[in-house]
Each structure stands twice: as structure tokens, then as C-alpha cells.
């Protein structure tokens, strides 16, 4: 049973612009799949379609009936008027979970992302990276089985991003998550993924699928390994080829 299965899904905006050409995508349970591509390739739209935020113009979208979805946005999107713990508790509050249980689960989620000591501070008092962690804690607090992440670390510096990538992998090991992850970073895609779906823009479409096959543990040594470099080169070539095709089509 796949976690996500898309068949001939396409999206055309109301103004007639084609955001996504018909595409198929299947994500197995426990997999980390990355959507990699330049801006305008429809990777975020695709994620929103899976999440149910955007309606597909045509095609079949099916998400496993037992999947609990957690969503992490490009920005932390925390409520500035609520302290960190209350922000993390929000999905439980909305679902009507009892206050005591919600508090305990929020504290646990914060601990898991290393923000245990920051429960009672305001979001604006946190750095960008810490705000993102709070946002991830908010996604984890509902104990999702499927995490959808829309360039969550795109606005962070590289050092912070690498650390958060490591934490994501750790959390995923601990609780058997399926992850569909959007990024424009080739390195992030190689580091995180079991499989990378390469997309191109105008119109948005899938141009290649690259499996990241390695037995090496994902750690700092992996980042400088030849396997890593080879995969990064493959992805880059796929992206460049797609961009060249698009340019020729325009010319």
C-alpha cells in the first residue's frame, strides 16, 4: 500500500497557465521522496495538491486512508501572539484534545526538536532556525505518518539547514515517517532522499527520477563522498538538460 499515489494529475490555473503537466507519482510508506526543481516548476503546487490545499484540475489523487498528514511550510508560520508551547499545541487544541494531554504532547514534541527549554518564549524571540524547529514540532505533535514539507529550510543558512536535515532524518528513523519534501537544493535532495523527482518549469513537469542508492550512513562523511558527488552531478545534469530543452522550445 503506497502512502501517496497520483495518477495523471495536472493543474491549470484559472488564468489558463499550465502549472503541472499530467504526471504520475507514487510514494511508498517509509520513503523520503524529494521534489527538486527551479522556482515555477510546480513542485509546491504538487505538494499542495497532495495536502488538499489545492484542487487538481484533473487526475487521481489518493493518500492512504490511515495516513495522518503533517505539513511544514516554507515559513515557520507561527502565531506571533502565542508562546512557542501554545503554537505547538495548536493542532491538538483545534482537534479538541484535552488540555493536560495536549500540554504533555507539546512538551514532548518540543523536546524532540531540541526546543524543550523554549516552551514559554515568544516566537519572535527565536532565531529563524529555531522558529522552523518549532514549526516542525507543531507538525510532529499530531504524530503524523506522512510529512509534507515545502522548502522548509530554504530561507536558512547552510549550516543550520544541514543540522535540521540531520534532525529530520533522526526523527524519521525514530517514528517511521513517510516524507515528501520540496527543495531547490541539489545537495539537500541527495542528502535526504531515497528518491529524487526532478522537475522543470514552464510548464511544470517531471523530467527524471533518480534513486539515491547508498549503504553509507547519512552523515557529514556522506556529504563529501564520491557517491554523493556522483548523485549530485546526475541531478544537476538532469536539471540542466531540462532547462536547455525549455530554452530551445522558446527559441
Amino acid at each position: 500500500m503506497s502512502a501517496i499515489e497520483l495518477r495523471a494529475v495536472e493543474k491549470t490555473w484559472e488564468n489558463g497557465v499550465q502549472a503541472l503537466r499530467p504526471l504520475d507519482l507514487r510514494v511508498e510508506r517509509g520513503e523520503i521522496v524529494t521534489l527538486l526543481g527551479p522556482s515555477g516548476c510546480g513542485k509546491s503546487s504538487l505538494l499542495n495538491i497532495v495536502a488538499g490545499l489545492t484542487e487538481a484540475s484533473a487526475g487521481d489523487v489518493s493518500v492512504g486512508p490511515d495516513e495522518r498528514i503533517g505539513f511544514v511550510f516554507q515559513q515557520a508560520t507561527l502565531m506571533p501572539w502565542a508562546r512557542v508551547a501554545a503554537n505547538v499545541r495548536l493542532p491538538l487544541d483545534l482537534a479538541g484534545v484535552a488540555r493536560a494531554e495536549a500540554n504533555a504532547r507539546a512538551a514532548e514534541a518540543l523536546r524532540r526538536v531540541g526546543l524543550g527549554a523554549f516552551a514559554e518564549v515568544w516566537p519572535r524571540e527565536l532565531s529563524g532556525g529555531m522558529q522552523m524547529r518549532a514549526s516542525i514540532a507543531r507538525a510532529l505533535v499530531t504524530e503524523p505518518t506522512l510529512l509534507l514539507m515545502d522548502e522548509p529550510f530554504g530561507a536558512l543558512d547552510e549550516i543550520t539547514r544541514n543540522r535540521l536535515d540531520d534532525e529530520l532524518l533522526r526523527v524519521r528513523r525514530e517514528q517511521q515517517l513517510t516524507v515528501l519534501f520540496v527543495t531547490h537544493s541539489i545537495h539537500e535532495a541527495v542528502y535526504l532522499s531515497d528518491r529524487v523527482v526532478v522537475m522543470a518549469a514552464r510548464p511544470g513537469r517531471v523530467v527524471a527520477e533518480v534513486a539515491i542508492t547508498t549503504d553509507e550512513p547519512r552523515d557529514d562523511a556522506f556529504r563529501v563522498s564520491t557517491t554523493f558527488a556522483r548523485h549530485a552531478r546526475d541531478l544537476q545534469q538532469a536539471l540542466l538538460a531540462a532547462a536547455r530543452d525549455a530554452d530551445e522550445a522558446l527559441a
Binding site: 488538499g52 490545499l53 505539513f71 511550510f73 515559513q75 508560520t77 493542532p91 483545534l94
Partner: peptide, 14 residues
């Protein structure tokens, strides 16, 4: 309303 937060509330079926 912050558009991102509005989306989040929608996702959570608020």
C-alpha cells in the same frame, strides 16, 4: 490574516 496561517488552519480543518 497571515495567508500561511490561514492555510494551516484550513489544513487542520479548523
Amino acid at each position: 490574516v497571515d495567508a500561511g496561517l490561514a492555510d494551516y488552519f484550513r489544513l487542520q480543518r479548523a
